[in-house]
């Protein structure tokens, strides 16, 4: 459309110009609405406890201090949750990507007998969902309750991701290549390992990012399946500290208590930043890949 605009600059009518101004105003407002909470949280997290409590922070940091962050890094629950979450995310991503690739590749091959049935077999699970309770009972009967497996296994594959991977294999590993390799006596497994995988780095990146972000951000399965605090992922610790916290200092004088309260309040802001940091670091890459993944998936279901 760009060339069109250039070639017809003179014909841009008055109403069109007004309209365009309206469009820009709208987008600027959208941008401000999206950005403001993010900037505010970050600014508050690096301000002093008193300034945050007194409401003096509204856009930029006031009385720069890192007390909130010191508090976060000295909190053993948070640190344990952080390392648990890293473990869950890495292990889960490996399991999920391996399973997804291993399933999606055969589904993409035309000569693989049963692929239509298998596609139906997985898409059917998108329409009918057993529900929370039967799912819980399955995990319980497998003896997985309150073990790391309850986090790693029950959500190990997503139908949407399988469809994305299958579409990718269908479009980027041509059937002729498969036939040629078969003529040369290459086994399916060998072909998958030494031809398909090297060709599939982009889709593996897409899958890994999608699964990793999902696992890092999820709290619900942990809340349902885990009891021991040593196994809690970061998001569950956050829930306790940020949302349901009812802790109050009893045996403290008022000044001390006020100080604690201020620090606890400030720590919430720092905690939000720290817990979102891993995702924010990969965000520039993730954004590109997420968009790519979403577009591959939408080409054909």
């Amino acid at each position: 459309m760009d060339e069109n605009i250039k070639s017809s600059k003179i014909r841009e009518s008055f109403t069109d110009r007004i309209f365009l101004i309206g469009v820009y105003t709208f987008l600027i407002i959208v941008l401000l609405i999206v950005l403001y909470p993010l900037i505010y949280i970050i600014s508050a997290s690096i301000s002093s406890p008193e300034a945050v409590m007194a409401g003096r922070v509204w856009l930029w940091p006031v009385d720069f201090s890192l007390e909130g962050y010191t508090e976060v890094f000295n909190n053993s629950d948070v640190m344990r949750g952080f390392s648990n979450s890293i473990f869950y995310t890495v292990a889960y991503t490996v399991i999920a990507v391996v399973l997804t690739v291993v399933f999606a590749y055969p589904l993409s091959r035309k000569s693989f007998y049963g692929r239509t049935f298998l596609m139906f077999f997985i898409i059917f699970t998108m329409l009918f969902y057993g529900g929370l309770i039967p799912e819980y009972l399955v995990v319980k009967n497998l003896g997985m309750l309150d073990t790391i497996w309850a986090i790693l296994i029950p959500k190990a594959m997503a139908v949407w991701q399988i469809i994305i991977a299958r579409t990718f294999f269908q479009t980027s590993v041509p059937e002729e290549l498969v036939e040629a390799s078969e003529m040369d006596g290459c086994s399916s497994l060998r072909f998958l390992w030494s031809v398909v995988l090297p060709l599939s780095k982009p889709i593996i990146a897409v899958l890994a990012l999608m699964y990793a972000v999902f696992q890092w951000n999820s709290y619900f399965d942990a809340m349902v399946f885990l009891r021991s605090e040593e196994l809690f992922p970061l998001q569950l610790e956050l829930r306790e500290l940020l949302i349901t916290q009812t802790e109050s200092g009893v045996n403290m004088d008022i000044a001390e208590q006020q100080k604690r309260e201020q620090l606890a309040n400030l720590m919430k802001y720092s905690l939000i930043v720290v817990s979102s940091l891993p995702v924010l670091i990969i965000y520039p890459f993730a954004q590109k890949y997420f968009v790519k993944g979403m577009l591959i998936g939408s080409v054909k279901g």
Binding site: V34, N217, Y219, Q235, I243
Partner: peptide
């Protein structure tokens, strides 16, 4: 910037709302 909030976890979003 409009994509960015999508990557924030539910717990964090709710904490932001509460705060």
């Amino acid at each position: 910037f409009t994509y960015a909030p999508y990557f924030i976890s539910t717990v964090v979003i709710v904490s932001m709302i509460v705060l």
